[in-house]
């Protein structure tokens, strides 16, 4: 016989309590956009209402105006082009050298024995400090600037590369050997593609280093360049233009990060 239905009422509110929530934070875009908008509004208000001295802290609107003026006069593109040229050449040179050394350290005992202590010893030297030396050796022109950037990119790239090569699973290399692949083929088809994720993440670091060093390198003898723009705007007491230059630098950094992200997504689809 079925039990009386009088228990139906209490059955309905006796559910098993839910205990598995939380500890899974997700990023939504809304709060970030609002936070940025609020910050910028507060900043503008601080300057407009004279809480902050407009002489030393230009308002967002003034920075925007300075940026527009630079773009309209065409000067901005000259500065960006000059910096990008130095970054591109320096980064390519440093990356080529760093990858060559890093992969060699990853593959060959002699390279590793010599290379790892050398890199560890020279890596910590701030490349900015070497700039006067490079000027002495290469002159005040582009070579000393490119050399500073290249050297700054070389070391983290070498470190990332040999770490990435070390992280290629040995089982895949043994598999390739067991199929009789020659050494060059194993490097080309197993080691390098396997090291690519580590190498690409090393690029993120080396790209931001290149950006920092281009500003330092443009301190001597650079009429054009974003770093030069920031520097001489400071000398001219044009703080609005200075911060406009800083904004451009940040934008440059964001673009580079975006491009690298895209590259990673395309090349590492197999992960």
């Amino acid at each position: 016989m079925k039990p009386p239905r009088a228990e139906a009422q209490s059955d309905a509110d006796r559910k098993v309590p839910f205990r598995g929530g939380g500890f899974a934070p997700r990023i939504t875009r809304g709060p970030a956009v609002i936070a940025f908008a609020v910050l910028i509004a507060l900043w503008q208000a601080a300057v407009s209402w004279r809480i902050a001295n407009p002489l030393f802290l230009p308002s967002p609107i003034e920075i925007g105006r300075a940026l527009y003026a630079l773009a309209a006069s065409g000067e901005l593109w000259l500065h960006i082009a000059a910096s990008l040229r130095r970054i591109a050449i320096g980064w390519l040179l440093g990356t080529a050298g760093g990858l060559a050394l890093g992969v060699a350290i990853g593959l060959f005992g002699l390279a590793r024995s010599v290379g790892v202590p050398l890199v560890s010893a020279l890596f910590p030297i701030p490349k900015i400090a070497l700039l006067p030396l490079f000027i002495l050796w290469f002159g005040i022109g582009e070579p000393s600037k490119v050399a500073t950037i290249a050297l700054g990119v070389f070391f983290p790239t070498a470190v990332a590369a040999f770490g990435a090569v070390d992280n290629v699973p040995r089982s895949l290399i043994r598999m390739a050997q067991s199929f009789g692949l020659p050494f060059a083929d194993i490097v080309r088809k197993v080691v390098l593609p396997g090291a690519l994720p580590g190498i690409l993440s090393g690029f993120r670091i080396s790209a931001s280093i290149a950006l920092i060093l281009v500003v330092a390198a443009e301190m001597i003898n650079a009429q054009y360049g974003i770093g030069a723009l920031v520097l001489f705007s400071g000398n001219l007491m044009r703080t609005d233009q200075l911060l406009a230059g800083v904004v451009v630098l940040s934008a440059l950094g964001l673009v580079i990060a975006f491009v690298l992200g895209r590259l990673e997504r395309r090349l590492l689809r197999w992960r």
Binding site: I140, N221, Q223
Partner: peptide
């Protein structure tokens, strides 16, 4: 005339 900004007189 190509300008070469060198920051200081000793430079």
């Amino acid at each position: 005339v190509k300008l070469a900004p060198l920051q200081t007189v000793p430079n």
